[in-house]
Every structure is written in structure tokens, then in C-alpha cells.
């Protein structure tokens, strides 16, 4: 693996973790009756940027390198299910994250206090944020399993 690909892989992980952290920060804020709009806007923006950049950096690594030697090594190794289930599921559920975080950011930037002060809408936003956070945790843990299965 070249230095560029290694850097992109690390960037994918770090940026994804930043996005997930921002989502859970959002979820914590949305538990409050009247969260700070500034905090919600900044956190959602960090999540959008984190996931889009993680998508691009991880995508480049996945498309140009993973499908060759890495995938072959996992399939030939003791845990072929690491690719068959974890990688296949991770690469596809991850596609949801940039769109979810973008929709959340739209709610906070354009809906603002009107949306957040409505308890039902705030609870719906909290549910969407938590679902996205769980997708992020699943993707992270899948990444750990996939990396550990390369022999």
C-alpha cells in the first residue's frame, strides 16, 4: 500500500469518527428542552463535512485498493464473512450518513428554533440523529473487524 492510500485510510477513519462524535454531541444537545442553536448548527455542519470527506477518502481507498489484495486476503483467510457481511453492509449503510447529516443541518440552519422548540419535531430529530450515530458505530466496529481479518 502506498503512503497516499495509507493516509487516505487514516483520514477516512478520523473524519468518520469526527462525524460520529458530532452526531452524538447533537443527540446530547437534543435531549435538552431548549438546546443552543449555535451548538446544533456547528455540530451538524461538522458532521456533514466529516462524513463527506470520509466518504471521498474512504471511497478512493476502497475503489482503487481494497477490491484487489485486501479483499482477496480476507476471502482466503479464516474470516471470509468479514468481507461478505461486515464490509458489504458497512460500505452501503455508510452511504446514508452524508444525506442524514445534510438533512439535519438543513433543519437546524433553516428551521432553527421553530423546529427545535416543538417537542415532537425535536424528538424526531433526536431519533434520526441516534439512528445515524448507530450506523456510524456499526461502520466503525465493522472497520475494526475488517482490518483485523486481513492476514
Amino acid at each position: 500500500m502506498t503512503q497516499t492510500l495509507a493516509t487516505l485510510l487514516i483520514a477516512h477513519i478520523v473524519l468518520g469518527l469526527i462525524g460520529i462524535g458530532a452526531l452524538f454531541a447533537l443527540a446530547m444537545a437534543l435531549l435538552k428542552k431548549m438546546p443552543s442553536m449555535r451548538f446544533l448548527r456547528i455540530s451538524s455542519l461538522i458532521a456533514v463535512i466529516g462524513f463527506i470527506l470520509s466518504w471521498i477518502s474512504g471511497g478512493y481507498y476502497y475503489v482503487t485498493y481494497y477490491g484487489g489484495p485486501v479483499k482477496a486476503a480476507i476471502k482466503a483467510g479464516p474470516n471470509p464473512w468479514a468481507h461478505a457481511f461486515f464490509m458489504e453492509a458497512k460500505e452501503h449503510v455508510f452511504l446514508l450518513l452524508p444525506f442524514i447529516s445534510l438533512a439535519l443541518a438543513c433543519a437546524f440552519f433553516f428551521g432553527g428554533e421553530r423546529i427545535v422548540s416543538d417537542d415532537k419535531k425535536r424528538h424526531a430529530l433526536l431519533a434520526i440523529t441516534l439512528i445515524a450515530g448507530l450506523i456510524g458505530v456499526f461502520s466503525t466496529l465493522s472497520g475494526v473487524i475488517i482490518s483485523g481479518s486481513v492476514r
Binding site: H92, L95, L96, L102, A103, C106, A107, F109, F110, G111
Partner: peptide, 18 residues
């Protein structure tokens, strides 16, 4: 604002497509 409603409608369609 029409933007949040439109964004969540778009999210629904994009999720189904994915």
C-alpha cells in the same frame, strides 16, 4: 421555511434508493 421539509423528503427518497 421550505428547506427542512424538502431536505427530509429528499432523505426519504435517497434512503429508499440506496
Amino acid at each position: 421555511s421550505r428547506v427542512p421539509h424538502a431536505a427530509f423528503c429528499a432523505l426519504i427518497v435517497a434512503s429508499l434508493v440506496i
